[in-house]
């Protein structure tokens, strides 16, 4: 990890903030490569059809429009279908919503690596909040243990146990960076994943064909794929769900952190941040210059992971 001079740092911080402000919010989904994608989509639809199995509602799902093209009524229909499916399978009534981005908000995390002690409260809060499969265990957050004074992500240990923090170690929580220049969305052959106006990269689990190109494209190992039927107890289900975030996923789709958009778009904090007992995680609207995240990016020596790739991540790390 290169630590740069103070001047350099403040220049870069100012530049980053400016860049954030400049990013055009209402960039519609690109039609670039539409032809290419359409042909891929035809092939992909075949795959999806064979995957959707024998569910009675499987065909509705198969003929469902792309989420971005759906009208409000069509969405209602889809939500009703999902609620019904969940009721059938788990016998719980869910509250499925679809909160839109908050106008003018751009979400970011700032994480203090001096304070994080690797206790993994965030990992488990995330699993519970987001109805992740318990077996096989799907976890969006990975905390890696590194030797102090080093910064080689490949040498980290994600499987440490026992009392933390350990001597001469520090802990680095990793999850989806919601990049402003996301490599993952570009490789999706069916446009099942895209970036929304508040910066969150979302996935339509009904549209995803499970090809996992996006997983290969992600330099942060943030995306997860569930090969088996997700296993969840009825009592474990969080009924506060949204279409693009934590509803129970079908088997064979890609999923990842979405900054708890079903919470954050209503003004709440993400589950991981709320659960953090050390205060290492800060979350907020980086477009608001008085927010803690904006203040940290401006005043602390922050860095992002793999900056050289030009992905423009939205999780800033710092030591204090």
């Amino acid at each position: 990890m290169k630590i740069d001079s103070d001047k350099n740092k403040s220049d870069r911080a100012a530049h980053r903030l400016k860049k954030k402000a400049e990013i055009k919010l209402a960039e519609p989904a690109s039609r670039r490569g539409f032809l290419k994608k359409l042909t891929a989509g035809v092939a992909a639809a075949g795959v999806a059809a064979t995957q959707s199995g024998c569910s009675t509602t499987g065909m509705d799902k198969f003929f469902q429009d792309h989420y971005k093209e759906m009208t409000a009524e069509e969405k209602e229909k889809v939500f009703a279908r999902i609620s019904e499916d969940t009721k059938k399978k788990y016998n719980v009534d869910i509250n499925l919503k679809d909160p839109p981005p908050v106008p003018g908000a751009r979400f970011a995390f700032a994480i203090s690596l001096s304070v994080c002690n690797g206790n993994r409260a965030c990992v488990h809060a995330c699993v519970e909040e987001n109805n992740q499969s318990r077996d096989p265990a799907v976890q969006y957050i990975k905390v890696i243990e590194l030797d102090r004074g080093t910064f080689n992500l490949e040498e980290g240990d994600a499987y440490y146990e026992g009392e933390v923090p350990k001597k001469d170690k520090f802990y680095l929580p990793m999850q989806c960076n919601q990049c402003d220049n996301p490599p993952c969305t570009k490789v999706c052959p069916v446009e099942a994943t895209w970036k929304e106006d508040d910066g969150i990269v979302v996935i339509d689990y009904d549209w995803c064909i499970g090809c996992r190109y996006c997983m290969a494209a992600c330099p942060y190992d943030a995306r997860r794929f569930n090969f088996k039927e997700p296993e969840l107890q009825r009592s474990e289900i969080n009924t506060n769900q949204s279409y693009l975030s934590n509803r129970v996923r079908p088997q064979g789709v890609v999923e990842k952190c979405h900054f708890c958009l079903h919470r954050t778009r209503l003004g709440a904090m993400p589950a991981c941040m709320e659960a953090c007992p050390t205060g290492a995680r800060k979350f907020g609207n980086i477009a608001d210059p008085n927010s803690d995240v904006a203040q940290i990016v401006q005043n602390k020596r922050v860095f992002v992971l793999k900056e050289e790739l030009g992905t423009i991540p939205n999780i800033y790390y710092y030591f204090d």
Binding site: N119, H124, P136, L153, A158, V164, P165
Partner: peptide
């Protein structure tokens, strides 16, 4: 001084071996 904590459960080892970057 903040007391040490017990780390919550580690992720299970992946069936297909440990992916690159997850272990020294």
């Amino acid at each position: 001084g903040r007391p040490k904590m017990q780390a919550m459960a580690a992720p299970p080892f992946p069936a297909g071996g440990i992916p690159k970057g997850d272990h020294p």
